[in-house]
Design a protein around this nucleic acid. Sequence first.
DNA 1: AAGATATTGTTGCAATTGCAACTTTTTTGA
DNA 2: TCAAAAAAGTTGCAATTGCAACAATATCTT
Lengths: 209, 209
Amino acid sequence: MSNLFDNISEKNKLKILRFLEASTLYFPKNVSIMSSVKWDNAIGFIEKGYVQIIRLDYNGNKTIIEELEENSLFGSTLSSLNNYEYDIITKEETKLIIIEYDNILKETNNHYSFYNTFIRNLLEILNAKITERNERIQILTKKSIRDKLLEYFGIISKRNGSKHIYLTLSYSELADYLAVNRSAMMRELKNLRDEGFIKTTSKRITLLY
Amino acid sequence: MSNLFDNISEKNKLKILRFLEASTLYFPKNVSIMSSVKWDNAIGFIEKGYVQIIRLDYNGNKTIIEELEENSLFGSTLSSLNNYEYDIITKEETKLIIIEYDNILKETNNHYSFYNTFIRNLLEILNAKITERNERIQILTKKSIRDKLLEYFGIISKRNGSKHIYLTLSYSELADYLAVNRSAMMRELKNLRDEGFIKTTSKRITLLY
DNA sequence: AAGATATTGTTGCAATTGCAACTTTTTTGA
DNA sequence: TCAAAAAAGTTGCAATTGCAACAATATCTT
């Protein structure tokens, strides 16, 4: 996964932040940062920490839209958070850099050759986001819980090049992610275990096929 | 929805296409264009026509990943089509412009002031794609067919600012899009009709809530 | 270390959904 | 224009899933 400042020196990074008129905010763990920022035209860059973008619908169903680790990018113009149903929650202490979107493409930026690298990184991050979404859609379009689980495991396994998977999500969160009932999912995991498709030890899963 | 050449004159558009070393291809209706192009580092721009990106899994389940109309952008680097399970099918006669991704960020491009506009358009298209995917995920994470339908209708209705919806997808395609069984979906539509939530006349739907 | 809180694991039962097998209607293309 | 193909519409039945209500573990937090 690409980083916004990949292949850019610390000195040039500071230069970029300066002419982007970026501001830096610090947040404690487990707080909403939705209301602290005017997101209409800003994007956020997580320099340190970990946050989740979640969605709560009228039924109280919770969906994790996105998990953002260190060096991830997110924001309204760049991923439509302009909806009151979304919330952004820090899961760790977080250092956030806010950038006004319109500043990204000011013509004067072009005078700096390293700015091309910055834009390339930005395009690559957006591309990675689309890929992520496509993977999620791939999973969600499976009709059975079993197929959703297998697709999820398959994607992770392929990504890491190993049949041994370590779950970063809790099982409750996984059920949310797959958009299925948690206990039905647990039941299906048991079936997969009983039928010899997988082996599990708490959050370690081995694919046996 | 933004276009790659918005706010760029025809003359400058041709200039851009020249230094991007773009090539143009023409396709008839209902053919796969997956194999005609080396997609590993190219993006495609649909100047004229209409294509669908679909996915066929091992069960034979078909999923429409994306529908691309005139002036849309798609491609491997920009949305991970590097998977043999995908196919791209023209649904109309199509004029396709192929651009090598690496050419997009050559430093010499910066000498042209209109190039900034081009990059801005590109960023906005990618952003729109992410938004689209988010909407789809929003729909797919609903647990019942009814809620999926209502979410879908709600999004379209909001987008057009009207309670009157015209379906561009056929009902079979809609079922694929929602990842549900077609006849179960038809049954649920009937229920919604009977319970007075919607009124339908073939592909025209009116929301009554 | 202990109480509080969150997560995991399990089950029965009802509701929803998928599937198959049709008929009817609409669209397509030679 | 007319036959063929595709899409829409229906239904019964079986399978899957969601839901509720637990008990058992694991994990915070003070």
